[in-house]
Write a protein that binds this DNA or RNA. Sequence first.
DNA 1: CACTTCTGTATG
DNA 2: CCGGTATGGTGG
DNA 3: GGGGTTCTGGGG
Lengths: 482, 284
Amino acid sequence: MSSTAPAAVAAPKKARAAKKATPSKDAAPKAKRGESQRYKYSELNKASLTSGEAQHIYGVIIDATFPYKTNQDRYICSLKIVDPSLYIKSQKGTGDSSDFATVVLYAKRFEDLPIITRLGDIIRVHRATLRLYNGQRQFNANIFYNSSWAVFPQEGAGHGGASHSGKNYSFEKSEDATLANIRKWAQGYFQQYNVVSSDLYVPLAKAAGQKSDFDVVAKVNQVFELDEYTNELRLRDGSGAQTWNVLALKLKFPNVHAGDVVRIRSATYDETSTQKKVLLLSHYSNILTVPANSKLAKEVKAKAGDEKLDKAAINGVNATVLTEVDKKHAGLPVHSLLDLFHNIETDKEIQSKDTFRTQFYVTKIESADVKEWTKSYDKKTKKGASFKGQKGNANAIYQVQFLVKDVSTQFNSNTYKVLLYTHDGLGANFFNTPADNLYTNDKAAKKLQEYSGLLTKFNSWVDAVVERRNGFYFIKDTKIAF
Amino acid sequence: MFASVPAAKPATAKKTAPPKSAFKTLIFELLENKGDFSKLSQSIRKSSLKCQVNQAFPKFLVSDGTYFLSAYFTKDCIRKCHAEKDRKVNITDLQGGLISINKWEVELIGVNSAEEFISYQNVEMRLVVHEFKALYGEQLKLRKFPANLFRDDEVKALIQHFIQEERSAHLKGLKRDFDASKPLLTLREANTVSLLDPSKGSKQSADEEIFSAFTHLLPKNKQVETVNLQEIYVAEKGPDALRQFNINFHFAQKKEVPCLEKKARNLKHGRRASHDDSRKQPAV
DNA sequence: CACTTCTGTATG
DNA sequence: CCGGTATGGTGG
DNA sequence: GGGGTTCTGGGG
């Protein structure tokens, strides 16, 4: 093989930053001709504390702040990393604080720092200086000068899918092995160890007692869209019966999903919230997902459990989904009311489909009189007749209109019709009771009356599958969950 | 928290304890009373609000130690504090200081939340200052990083609830004569019920535009008149200063030094070994 | 080429 | 005259 | 650096 200098790899994705990361001065970049290694990577625990020279490292990320602004022209991202020479060995109990290294990246621009979304990803830093800070090995890297970083996902082979500072990044062929090795080690490490030792976070049950900010490891039981900018995460960690809420901007944390186990770097207890338990985030706070197959994630998932829905919880304090959708639609993508009623006029994709999953709240139900929710249906004329004054329940069907609203249509003046018309069988089980003459079946009428109240209550939501027929949307394969 | 406001004592008996923030209590009460300030208990309306001035310009932000919101001054208020002979008070010099707002009111108004960050879903609780006093002596031991009141989880829920009730009241009062004989052209027309009054001839397709004509949000002409903060700035510091302020944005310059606190801070200068430079030496 | 540091000039 | 900006110098 | 911005004041 020609033993030429390593080829700089063109960025596979659009680079986050606009800078260049051409190798600059200091230690390693002195590749003699014929030599193929410009960068030599130090193990975290063997990097020199005395030389003061710039060094190059690979590490497994176990914590990180979000890139944050510190003054007019400085941004910082601070992270904790480990490698086979320096890692937290305790599975539980107190960890030894010297068992990881920290990395502090400095930049002039937000875009020049990495956004870390997962524990277990690999970071490579070029031209960092090592010093002891509070007994910690701390690598400092000035991205605004000549340092650079690259982050490789834990999943996947090779160095595809990397994000990096600068316009491009170098990757020597010898690094294939380096990367593969540390990935393999990380894999085993996350499966055998907790990685995040218990002194690095607090159980939610102890959150209220914290004096200052703290970290959390918990399961995301639900991601609720609070408004067009914000999700409200529902967190549980099994340390108490409470479910905790935290507002997470959609743009800042696009990768948080229900069922994930996450680590929150820096939260505070909200002393002003009296109706529900709330954690507050800061601009440097981060939410990192814990690999699903890791020991830690499995333990937390097992402990957290699910919060079951019961009627008493529908009190307007927390937004609550009252319905459940048949499992066969699990993969059906969610569409907003804007899609269903507006974008359909122009969007070919939407026009080509007729079944959608959608979420909304009910502002009004028609008929207002619950007894008129069912009709006697004449298949010939396709008309429903009131049961009022009638005996029996011949050909009973539901004919109910929901006037609904959602986040995507929050600001406009419209409410939208979603129908529960069961003449063709669609949605027949929605109310968990067969359509009947409600003038004679008091028990059913009473139950429906209760549903009516709960469905139109503030913070009650419906998660439904609808099918478009003849220009109307009909609910199907959906039922109230209690 | 307020100095003398029994903020911890809501007028109406609630199931839950009041929040530990005067502003949050205030917005709870105001929304509960559909924006009618006169319905709040006198003990709240007549209390003084002791606040920290987080920022004087371009928005006047005051905090109760936990949350901040925007304050607005009446013409009378400005006139009075500029008239003080010996100690003329400059609104724009209050940054970092404490003030006691002794006469005030709050009103619920419709705004564009895309532009006004001290609001939520186009609703703002507007704090109108009729009379205040600068508290020069007192120390600022309030929380250092107050948060936007309108980003609070419970406050958001409260405003959503308010809007939803306004909407459903609107919907209930709407006379909807559905003309079945008229052919429906689009799916949207068939499935849309508008809050807009159909008799007004407004188009049914209010897709893009923002609806905030709720009955309990004050229209512009019903709001208390307040002085534009930029006018105050010019009056106090001159047009040059305003121009300079805007230039500072072009190239971000130094942090404005709050007039009130720039004295007693010449003691610390010993540049702590900041490690943001990999070439600089000493470790700790 | 991008970054830092130094120097001189325009600007107010 | 101060400070920010533009320019040339530097290492890789 | 376990932290505090803002023409970015719902990534910062």
